Simulated scan of single mutants.
Amino acid sequence: MSVLFTVGYEGTDIDRFIRTLKAAGVERLADVRAVAASRKAGFSKTKLAERLADEGIEYSHFIALGDPKPGREAARAGNFDLFRSIYGAHIQTAPAQESLRKLIDFVQDAPTCLLCFERDPETCHRTIVAREVIEETGFEVFNLFADDPERYVRHAAKLPRFHSGEGLTAA
């Protein structure tokens, strides 16, 4: 079975973030933020894409899969039921569904990681996106935490691996 990684950059810096991706064997990063700007150095779209390219990691922004502002505000306020309701309705929209189809194609050929801000995947819309992807691909999800890349280096043999040809295109 193949794997889809997810990661948030909350609580880390760009160097540890990159080391985490590389330790897990990520070759593509799918940015699912609605707004790919960040006050954290290195995480705004252009700077992040440049750094990833320097590291041999492909970057793509799936803006239509980002959490709309009311959903982000609900999550920030700790109202996760409202957040999930808002995002659940959003992901059913035509633009989000089209972007989801593109994302599913994007993850097929190389180890891919979904990116958003929140460290905790349970309070982030990337988990909802990941569920949609795995429903179509059969991949498993593995959540990375970018604040301690050495844990992935130390336990590299235990990390799930991407297996080319598994998933939607092999079905």
Rank of each mutant, 00 (worst) to 15 (best):
D31S: 04
D31P: 06
R33P: 05
R33W: 06
A34E: 14
V35K: 12
V35W: 11
A36W: 06
A37R: 15
A37Y: 14
A37F: 14
K40Q: 13
G42S: 11
F43R: 06
F43C: 04
F43L: 07
F43H: 08
F43Q: 02
S44M: 10
S44Q: 12
K45S: 14
K45L: 12
T46Q: 14
T46N: 13
L48T: 03
A49D: 06
A49N: 05
E50V: 12
A53R: 15
A53M: 10
A53C: 02
D54W: 01
D54G: 15
E55W: 03
G56C: 01
E58Y: 07
E58W: 02
Y59W: 09
Y59E: 08
H61W: 15
F62A: 05
I63R: 14
A64V: 04
L65Y: 01
L65C: 08
G66P: 06
D67S: 14
P68V: 08
K69S: 08
K69W: 09
P70F: 07
G71S: 13
G71M: 01
R72I: 01
E73M: 14
A75F: 04
A75P: 00
R76S: 12
R76C: 02
A77T: 04
A77G: 09
A77C: 12
A77H: 07
N79R: 15
N79L: 08
F80E: 10
D81Q: 13
L82N: 12
L82F: 01
S85F: 01
S85H: 11
I86K: 11
I86Y: 04
G88V: 10
A89L: 09
A89E: 15
H90W: 14
I91N: 06
T93F: 05
T93R: 13
A96R: 02
E98Q: 12
L100V: 02
L103C: 09
L103T: 00
D105A: 11
D105G: 02
D105M: 03
D105K: 02
D105H: 08
V107N: 01
A110F: 00
P111E: 03
L114R: 04
L115A: 02
C116H: 06
F117P: 01
F117I: 03
R119K: 15
R119M: 11
R119T: 10
D120K: 11
P121Y: 08
E122M: 13
C124H: 06
H125D: 10
T127L: 13
T127W: 02
T127P: 00
I128R: 12
I128W: 01
V129T: 12
A130S: 11
R131H: 14
R131N: 15
R131G: 15
R131W: 10
E132F: 02
I134M: 09
E135M: 09
E135S: 15
E136F: 05
T137W: 00
G138C: 07
G138K: 09
F139H: 11
E140C: 11
E140N: 07
F142T: 05
